[in-house]
Simulated scan of single mutants.
Amino acid sequence: MPRLLDKLAQPTRNELALYKLKGVVIVLVLALISQWLGSTKPFTSLGLGSLTLGIGLGAMIGNTLLHTLSPPVLDGVDFAKGPLLRLGVVLFGLRLTFSDIADVGVVGVVIDVVVVVSILCLAMLIGRKALGLDVQTSLLIGAGSAICGAAAILATEPVVKGAPHKVSVAIATVVTFGTLSLFAYPAIYHALPLTDAQFSLFVGATVHEVAQVVAIGSSINEHVADMAVVEKMVRVMLLAPVLMVLSSIVGRSTGDETKKVVIPWFAFVFIAVCAVNSLDFLSDLLRSWLLMVDQILLTMAMVALGLRTNLRAVCQVGKKPFLLAAVLYGVLLCGGLVLVQFAHR
């Protein structure tokens, strides 16, 4: 009799699907709220977009009300930071075309490659050897600093398999120094004898977030903003090869030589989407609609990560992740200036 009652108490497959859908809907609603907040002046002036606000809103709710959700509903939350995140990364390729590479020229591409490779190597060297951080935290902070902030961290998370609180810590570091850039970079432009071409190259090759690149460039003039964004887009395009390399690094770092290296399939699809976008097959209307969907998917992933983040675990991480991010930020500033000065001799 008890076994029969247990079977009757268990939800059916359809009920489990509805619970999971409920979790996805909760994440979607919070993502839409984050997008609305991100479009308001107080947050746009600070360069805080929907991705940053999404993880913040998710963390606040996750650490106060998450215990009220049943496990099947939480499966829907995890779906948002899993398959939906990967789809969002794939659609992110619609922001790029192969002609972007031609626009920045060989010098721009070389500078981007040097920045990405050096920052990732320094993140592993300093994070692991000097600060004693784990591989996942070091790589997440390195990817966010080297490539494109929160979006790069989100794309890297499935590869390095970092816990939600590690992802949140990494995002917090790039948000902190990315926000600082909104004030530091215009000051650098006015303090140093940089041409518009040099400054746009400097901004595109070293600033964390695409939105921050737009904000900083626009504070100077429209031409600087346009050139800086193109340089930044080429840097973003390096995301796919970086994910493949990181997959191999993480596989070796486990200490299990027999462990199979997982190749992130969505990195290949990301490149394919870039190729399709380069061929100009898509209408402007369809492309803009897909980009809107992409922004929603990425924001949903951030909300889901926030919901699953234990703020106690974040606090227990300490100052070392921020110290690593600070060192990387200093290298981006100083090294970036040296590179653009050398490139335009």
Rank of each mutant, 00 (worst) to 15 (best):
Y329M: 07
S219W: 08
L51I: 02
G93F: 05
A31F: 08
K320D: 11
W36V: 14
V104K: 08
S247Y: 04
R3L: 15
T299I: 08
R13D: 15
D78M: 13
V114T: 10
H223N: 15
S288G: 10
S219F: 06
V236P: 08
Y19W: 13
C148P: 05
Q136K: 12
V340F: 08
A123P: 02
V203G: 01
G54A: 06
G178N: 01
Y19T: 09
S248H: 14
L8C: 10
T309D: 09
R95M: 10
A151R: 05
A215L: 10
D112A: 01
F270A: 03
A304W: 01
F92C: 05
T176V: 13
I61M: 05
M60K: 04
R3F: 15
V236W: 07
D284C: 01
P164I: 06
N14Q: 15
I61S: 03
M237C: 02
G49M: 00
A197L: 14
T64R: 11
W289F: 13
I55Y: 00
L32Y: 11
T258I: 11
V303L: 00
V269H: 07
A325N: 07
C334E: 10
P164K: 03
V24P: 00
F266I: 01
A143G: 09
P71L: 11
S181V: 06
M233W: 03
P72H: 02
E257T: 14
G251H: 15
V27Q: 03
A155Q: 03
V262P: 00
L201K: 09
L30I: 13
L339H: 06
K129V: 13
L307R: 04
A326T: 07
T206V: 04
S45M: 14
A9S: 15
S168Q: 08
A143C: 12
G318R: 07
A313Y: 13
D294I: 09
